[in-house]
């Protein structure tokens, strides 16, 4: 991880859409009077959703909404890695490189990213994709995995990952979750324990 900085290229201004502003106001109303600053993370998150990434004018805009000093909002934005301070692709790939995923072939996935997207942190020329290596996303049992926008894509290998990237690029929907056919984190070759109860409960199960 490196020092998180604001992007040199920033939009002129930022404003919530009317719907988002309404949403922001309901969030702010959740907190007692004078404690509106507590809504900072949800508002910054909404700003990022609206804009794709979190530009500097949005930080000021949210700080103004909440009556905070700008620097306080900047502190929050630079602390949480979920806030993207630079532009990201339409499909933003967060690639887990922590030990379990790494042992299961995360390096191959990185190569795929370099080949199909470009260097880490750069947005592909068509603006569709960008990638970042991140720390453990908590899906070790399905390693290796990536998160693309809000969804996990698990049990990957280079080939499957390439396919996912090219389908996303061409605008198709890709089913999230394990990509090797298994259901969630069940054993790959069917149940290995509690087989009796599995068969007993089959009627209610599958």
């Amino acid at each position: 991880m490196s020092v998180r900085r604001l992007d040199p290229n920033q939009p002129e201004s930022f404003e919530f859409t009317p719907e988002n502003l309404d949403w922001a106001k309901t969030q702010m109303a959740k907190y007692p009077d004078g404690k509106q600053a507590s809504a900072i993370i949800s508002l910054l998150w909404q700003a990022q959703k609206q804009h794709g990434w979190l530009p500097e004018p949005a930080i000021r805009y949210v700080a103004d909404l909440l009556g905070m000093d700008y620097i306080r909002a900047l502190e929050v934005a630079t602390f949480y890695t979920m806030f993207n301070l630079s532009p990201v692709g339409e499909h933003f790939v967060q690639l887990c490189g922590t030990t379990p995923c790494w042992l299961r072939g995360a390096d191959d996935l990185k190569e795929v990213c370099r080949k199909h997207i470009g260097e880490e942190g750069e947005v592909s020329e068509d603006g569709k994709l960008s990638w970042l290596e991140v720390e453990c996303l908590g899906a070790c049992v399905n390693a290796p995995m990536v998160q693309i926008n809000d969804d996990f894509y698990e049990d990957l290998d280079a080939e499957k990952f390439e396919r996912i990237l090219s389908e996303l690029r061409s605008g198709k929907d890709v089913k999230p979750g394990p990509q090797n056919g298994r259901r969630s984190s069940e054993p790959e070759d069917g149940p290995t324990t509690l087989k009796d109860s599995m068969s007993a409960g089959k009627a209610g199960g599958e």
Partner: peptide, 25 residues
């Protein structure tokens, strides 16, 4: 600056090992 001078001007960005004290931009 926050408590005595009353101007929230200084802050710590990038909390963690890369924390830096700075004013807004």
């Amino acid at each position: 600056t926050t408590e005595v001078a009353g101007a929230g001007e200084l802050g710590a960005i990038g909390r963690g090992e890369d924390m830096e004290v700075t004013t807004y931009l």
